[in-house]
Design a protein around this nucleic acid. Structure first.
Length: 589
RNA sequence: GUGCCCGUAGCUCAAUCGGAUAGAGCACCAGCCUUCUAAGCUGGGGGUUACAGGUUCGAUCCCUGUCGGGCACGCCA
């Protein structure tokens, strides 16, 4: 620990440990300390006696009595009570509780940061959506969650690398390229009998890219005849209908025809649509307050030979075999349900193969902790990635894969269906425009990531006060206004006497404030930013109650100064917590 | 059918890694602005934690089963 003072918990823990050592031959290293729900149970409580009782073969209450007797005296503790089945309830002195205010004012936004991850590098990969269209509200949840998790890990002392995996190598990119091409042909009036494929990308953004592409590439627009001929279709003036069962085959034929007819222009168009979509995605995310250190290209893994290399490594290790012409990885030997194909009968590598290469790359970069944030629909994929890592000799316990559940949109009580392909979706950009960045960021992380999120658009777009973001921001704005009205020098507050802070509301607020570092540690460790949101709401609630109860600026100077110091500390914590969640803290509203 | 996740107040969700009397918001009812911002506060009713067993000092949490919901089960990505 490099903090100037050890935390309250650490100091209390040390006292308890001393007591445990006196009465027990095999002491626990870290006696548990809890924050009781009820104030009658003290500022802290420890169930240590209950846990020790079995080993000592004594009744828990007797063990607790001995522990209390063995507890060294301390200026922190006012009194200690034995309660219930054997809890040790600790009541702090007012002075011990008040100290946190000075600590917060002194350390500012460093308060709550820890050294837990010091010297360790962590990679957080998130969003990683196919660059085939605008981000929708589902991606928004991954973005908000991942960004907050990354911030929390940074606060915990880790050196954080934020990364977006760009799936630029697959068939979906070809489909987008063909979709853009076909739209350009339609716009030029050249396409008459060939309908736009039902499994093509149909959004307006494809039309926009098509217009731009037609300007940029002079040989993009061709007549319909060679296309029909390349597809093996008869020349006709009627609209050709394709049965939906054959959509995928038709799309493959379209891709092949496009490559053949466009030649080098196909690659140029492919590059163009990819660049357009990535730029759009990057800007969208930036406006959402989500910034990446690296955009990692899947294609680069093929170009560098990394995919071929990991497959040959698996080969050499003896974990590959051939069946029905394909190369299979024996993942079932490493905990997966069944074996998986890494190289298809046609010689092409599967997505799984490039994903192994990507994860090997992550491990080779030497991160101490690797966090993949995936959509919950990919959960079945985790065992095979772990299997590959284990087979190649990596310690897969360094990999964590928190899952983000789907977002369901509700409009006027009805669930809105989403399909990227059909273009019927609500984009992240639309959502931000409607509800604002702050509300969207907070809404997204307000529930546990692995829980389904029902996003009520009417509620979120109504600017109603139901939206919790206002509640927290309002607390911050109120504090700034009071400090402004007070007119003193905030920098002097860290020297204020704090002994007047003994009222009920003040005590509760102090208890919440000194819980902040432990809260952040848990939120970071569990990848659980929702805990921060709930914490901020609780702190805001206590503040609003305090505000309504006490006229801060009335009374003696010492008392006013102490209250201003407390307000300054609350404001600092609110600001810090909000910034971890990517939400602004306005000074006035 | 198999695997994973989930089931908590009328609704949307928490619950300090097994702790004491399960908590918030919304909605509903009754109050509070000549005083630092009423985007606020105070009080009230609301629960067999889906169900049935088990483990122990103690279970919303761990185990088994049942019911109900979601997702995944490709040589797609």
């Amino acid at each position: 620990m490099t903090t100037p003072e050890e935390s309250l918990e650490a100091r209390l823990c040390a006292l308890l440990t001393t007591a445990v050592q006196k009465i027990s031959p095999s002491p626990m290293l870290h006696p548990a300390l809890e924050r009781p729900r009820q104030s009658a149970h003290g500022d802290f409580a420890s169930p240590i006696a209950l846990q020790l009782a079995k080993g000592l073969r004594r009744p828990p209450r007797e063990v607790a009595t001995q522990l209390i007797a063995a507890l060294p005296s301390s200026t922190l503790i006012e009194r200690v009570e034995l309660a219930g089945p054997g809890f040790i309830n600790i009541f702090l002195t007012a002075q011990a509780r008040q100290e946190v205010v000075h600590e917060i004012l002194r350390r500012g936004s460093l308060f709550g940061s820890s050294q837990k991850g010091a010297g360790q590098r962590v990679q957080v990969e998130f969003v990683s959506s196919n660059p085939t269209g605008p981000l929708h509200v589902g991606h928004g949840r991954g973005a908000a969650y991942g960004a907050s998790v990354a911030n929390l890990l940074g606060k915990a002392g880790y050196q954080v690398h934020r990364e977006y995996y760009v799936n630029d190598a697959g068939r979906q990119m070809d489909i987008l390229t063909v979709s853009t091409w076909l739209r350009a042909l339609q716009q030029s009036g050249k396409l008459k009998s060939l309908p736009f494929p039902g499994n093509g990308y149909q959004g307006d953004y494809v039309e926009t890219m098509a217009r731009e592409a037609a300007q940029r590439f002079s040989d993009l627009v061709i007549h319909e005849e060679p296309l029909l001929s390349a597809l093996g279709l008869p020349q006709t003036n009627d609209l050709i209908a394709f049965p939906t069962e054959q959509e995928e085959l038709h799309m493959d034929a379209l891709i092949a025809a496009a490559k053949e007819l466009l030649g080098p222009t196909y690659r140029a168009l492919h590059h163009f649509v990819l660049t357009e979509q990535l730029a759009d995605c990057r800007q969208d995310l930036e406006e959402f307050g989500v910034v990446f250190d690296e955009w990692f290209s899947e294609q680069s893994l093929f170009d560098s030979g990394a995919v071929a290399l990991v497959v040959s490594r698996l080969e050499e290790a003896g974990y590959l075999y051939t069946e029905k012409g394909a190369r299979w990885f024996r993942s079932s030997a490493f905990g997966d349900e069944k074996d998986r194909v890494v190289q298809r009968e046609n010689g092409l590598y599967t997505y799984f193969a490039s994903d192994i290469a990507y994860h090997v790359d992550k491990f080779e970069r030497g991160y101490d902790l690797i966090v993949d944030i995936w959509g919950a629909d990919h959960h079945g994929y985790i065992p095979r990635v772990r299997a590959a890592l284990k087979a190649l000799g990596y310690d897969d316990s360094r990999l964590s894969v928190p899952l983000v559940q789907f977002v369901s949109l509700f409009r006027q009580g009805e669930k809105a269906q989403m399909s990227t392909r059909k273009g019927q979706f609500i984009t992240l950009r639309e959502l931000r425009t409607e509800v604002g960045r702050d509300a969207a960021r907070l809404f997204y992380i307000l529930r546990k990531s692995d829980q389904h999120l029902d996003f009520d658009l009417d509620l979120a777009t109504s600017q109603s006060q139901d939206n919790p973001v206002y509640y927290i921001q309002y607390a911050h704005a109120r504090i700034q206004r009071v400090l402004e009205r007070w007119g003193g020098d905030p920098a002097q507050l860290e020297n204020s006497a704090l002994h007047p802070l003994i009222h009920e509301e003040e005590t509760r607020i102090l208890q919440i404030l000194y819980a902040y570092p432990a809260l952040l540690e848990q939120a970071a460790g569990d990848f659980a930013p929702h805990l921060v949101a709930f914490y901020l709401r609780d702190l805001s609630a206590e503040f609003h109650a305090y505000y309504n109860r006490v006229p801060f600026l009335e009374g003696e100077s010492v008392q006013v100064q102490a209250r201003m110091a407390l307000l300054g500390a609350i404001g600092t914590v609110l600001r810090d917590g909000l910034s971890l969640l990517g939400v602004s803290a306005p000074d006035r509203m």
